[in-house]
Design a protein around this nucleic acid. Sequence first.
DNA 1: GAATGTGAAGGTTTTCACAGCA
DNA 2: TGCTGTGAAAACCTTCACATTC
Lengths: 225, 225
Amino acid sequence: MSIPVSPSIRKRISESTIHRLSLYYRALSLLEKENYETVSSKELAKREKLTPAQVRKDLSFFGSFGTRGLGYPVKELRAQISSILGLDRTWRVALIGIGNIGSALVSYKEFSKQGFQIVKLFDNDQRKIGSNHKGIIVSDIRNLETELRNDRIEMVVLAVPATVAQYIVDDVVRAGIKAILNFAPANLKVPDDVYLRNENMSMELEYLSFAIVNNHAQKRVKLNI
Amino acid sequence: MSIPVSPSIRKRISESTIHRLSLYYRALSLLEKENYETVSSKELAKREKLTPAQVRKDLSFFGSFGTRGLGYPVKELRAQISSILGLDRTWRVALIGIGNIGSALVSYKEFSKQGFQIVKLFDNDQRKIGSNHKGIIVSDIRNLETELRNDRIEMVVLAVPATVAQYIVDDVVRAGIKAILNFAPANLKVPDDVYLRNENMSMELEYLSFAIVNNHAQKRVKLNI
DNA sequence: GAATGTGAAGGTTTTCACAGCA
DNA sequence: TGCTGTGAAAACCTTCACATTC
């Protein structure tokens, strides 16, 4: 009998661990397609450029999913991580701002693949309101609060200009939304009980720029074979 | 006289420090627009939801830019960080894959604003090759290696399907490119001397999903006032 | 008085190394 | 024998606290 995933986590799990769970999840999905029955922490680590100890430690926070001498059962572990990350269900997501980035996100396959269903689109541009994107009619942002409530939206993706982002996020918070993914290069203020994450796509380019200019040492992956 | 930025950094600077430099840079750009002459670590920290000590420590790795009792000169500090991050110049960037995400990135203002100039586009789709995106003609990916060399491209942004990403990245590496930003959900292998960063946009949504499902405690920002 | 710069302390994350089990 | 699970150690990162400077 396997130990169940603890429903409420005692020790605070680090952000990095959670991000790595996403990586494991992706690797396991691939391994399942490749018909692997089991996988060792060593193999998982290799595929995600991590160390075997890291993989085992991360997983150990949530339970004992492996078998000594054998490894982890691919299918089960994938299901477990899926449940830990809340990917064993679908999420009703609204996307605000049908510009550049917004339009791309509507058809971004990785979102829907993981259960994030964009079911609502908003914009303030009269030319866009009423138009159809991938089967969804763009709503007027003036009705944001009521429509977010009526459509039982659980997460919001913000892809609006930085200058208006705070006003919109205030509305979103008023609508009772507790999870927001922000693409605007702005520092948004939200109450303590609202989860806000920022996606800053030029940050990684800036890292590359820094790395080249400064000859920055790469983090070396120990292979401990 | 100010102490110059050490050209080669002895102690390895952490990734987080570099990412925070990006944040400081953005905040300082705004402060400059707002006509601030100086800024304290306290104010900078507040704007980026960090601690004053963190700000001072980060900056101290690169030099002494402030004045005791006064704070940091906004304009100078911005210039210094700009030079540290390599943003005081322009970068010739090629974008490969003019799909969903790729098209959005061509017009993504944050890139050009920081000096990342997309000067070259590639795709393998005959219908796209030869077409004009924001003044750039899409090239055939079959000429990737030679064109990257001839056009003296310094960075590559990859926005192609995961299934073909490795083949393309191999070509990119052969062309001598040392910095790659990858949007494909794939684990690409590159030689040690090539910087590769991954942008995984669903990872943050997965974090939000985890946070909701597990009532994950937010990292609390100490205000030490 | 105000705020930086920085060793040292404290806290967190990663890695080690090995007991334990299939 | 092979590989997990995990305390302990090591490495790393953040915060403290204060001497220092304007």
